[in-house]
Nucleic acid binder design. Sequence first.
DNA 1: CAGAATCCATCGTGATACTG
DNA 2: CAGTATCACGATGGATTCTG
Lengths: 118, 118
Amino acid sequence: MRPQTAKAVREWRTSCAAEITTMVLGGAWKPSILHALAEHDVLRFGELSRQLSDLTDRVLTRQLRELEADGLVRRVVYPQVPPKVEYSLTELGENAQEVLNAMAAWGRSYAAEHDPDR
Amino acid sequence: MRPQTAKAVREWRTSCAAEITTMVLGGAWKPSILHALAEHDVLRFGELSRQLSDLTDRVLTRQLRELEADGLVRRVVYPQVPPKVEYSLTELGENAQEVLNAMAAWGRSYAAEHDPDR
DNA sequence: CAGAATCCATCGTGATACTG
DNA sequence: CAGTATCACGATGGATTCTG
C-alpha cells in the first residue's frame, strides 16, 4: 500500500522522489506561504494571515504545522502576553525556493499553452 | 481573490503557477507514469500496467486520461481485435521531465536530510 | 487486451464559533 | 494575538466485478 503523508513516504522505499516533493510542497497554500516567508524572512502569524487573506486562520495554522513538521519552517514562540509567534524558513525551506521557481516556470508555460489570455 | 498591485500580481502568479504544476503533476502516480513513458517512448496499456505493478488498471486508466486531458500524454487507439492502445509523451509531457527531475532532486535531498541512513 | 461500472474509505480543505 | 474545537463536504484513490 502506498503511504499518504510525507512522513510516511520517508519510511517507504520509493522509486520516484518527485512524489515526495509533491507531498511536501503540494499543499494548496504551501507555495504561497513559502513564497511569503522567502520575501520577508520573518513573519508573525497575523502578518502571514494578512498577506494570505484568502485562507482562514484554521487552514493557515495547519499548513504551517505541516511545513514545520516537514522541516521547512521554523516556529518560534515567545512566552509572553499577548502571544507572539514568529515564522521563518529553515535552510531546507530556502533550498525549496529553487524547485518552486522551476515549478512556477513550468506552470506558467503550461497555463500559456492552455489559457493564452491570462 | 486577485491582488491589486502589479507587484502583487507578479508574486501571485509566481506562487500560483507552482500550484498549477502540483495540480497537473501532483496525481499520486503521475510522476511514475511520465517517467516510464519518458524511458520507453511508446508503451501499450498492458506494458504500463506491468511496469507500475502497484496500481490497479482502474487507477492507471484514470491517471492516463487526466494526463491526456492535460495534454501531457498522447493516446493512440488501433481499431482492431484484440484492442491495442499506445501511450506516449507529447511535447508538453517531454518538457515536464525537466521539472520532474528538479522535483526529484529536491525530494532526494529532502529524504536524505530526514533519513540520512539510506 | 484494455478498459468500464459501481461502490466505498480517506484526506484535504473550509466555515463557524470559541479561548488563554 | 495566535490560535483550538467541531462539523461538514467534495475530490482522490482504491477494491471489486464485469465486458466488447
